[in-house]
């Protein structure tokens, strides 16, 4: 009796366990994070207004590698006189839509569930907003490079992190 139950269970459990192991494989993979060159500093005027820049990097999807693909969008804002812009990711911390900004507007607006953010990325209505937190900031690094002609140009690099949506704290979606 017992032997039959054990044998029968093993017969079914073995393929199921192997199947589940492969089914769960996404849990064992880490999301790639990368430093990405976003723009030249000259392309970000120091007028305190947001400008959208595409995040272009290699993207791997299962078996396909897409070289230099746009994987996201980042708003760069440079205050007057500052040499260091702030970077806000365009992905809404609420449900992951892309926050848009129309030149002239004094707010970032998300088209999905009406989140709105001030130009420094904070929520326009604070905790009353549907977004659980302010827009996510990305780490900015300025790299200098010298052209063959001896001219010095500054590049804006960011640490492109994809954050989980819907939480009060920004957690990378590793």
């Amino acid at each position: 009796m017992l032997a039959t139950i054990v044998a029968g269970t093993l017969n079914l459990l073995t393929p199921l366990a192997v199947g589940l192991a492969s089914f769960f494989s996404p849990l064992f993979k880490k999301a790639p994070q990368s430093r990405v060159r976003l723009a030249l500093l000259d392309q970000v005027p120091d007028d305190g207004l947001p400008r959208s820049f595409p995040v272009v990097t290699d993207r791997v999807d299962a078996w396909t590698k897409y070289p230099s693909q746009q994987v996201g969008s980042v708003y760069l804002i440079r205050q007057p006189g500052s040499g260091q812009p702030t970077a806000l990711t365009a992905k809404c911390p609420h449900a992951g839509c892309f926050i848009s900004y129309k030149p002239g507007d004094d707010l970032f607006r998300c088209p999905c569930h009406t989140s709105a953010f001030k130009l420094d990325g904070t929520r326009s209505r604070g905790d009353q907003d549907v977004a659980p937190r302010d827009m996510d900031r990305l780490e900015v690094e300025i790299r200098k490079r010298t052209t063959p002609a001896g001219e010095e140009v500054a590049e804006v690099w960011i640490e492109f992190v994809d954050f989980q949506t819907g939480h009060k704290e920004a957690k990378p979606s590793a």
């Binding site: 996404p26 993979k29 999301a31 993207r59 999807d61 299962a62 078996w63 994809d162």
Partner: peptide
């Protein structure tokens, strides 16, 4: 099927 939307 991963951390991004795609084939899987």
């Amino acid at each position: 099927g991963g951390s991004d939307y795609g084939h899987h």
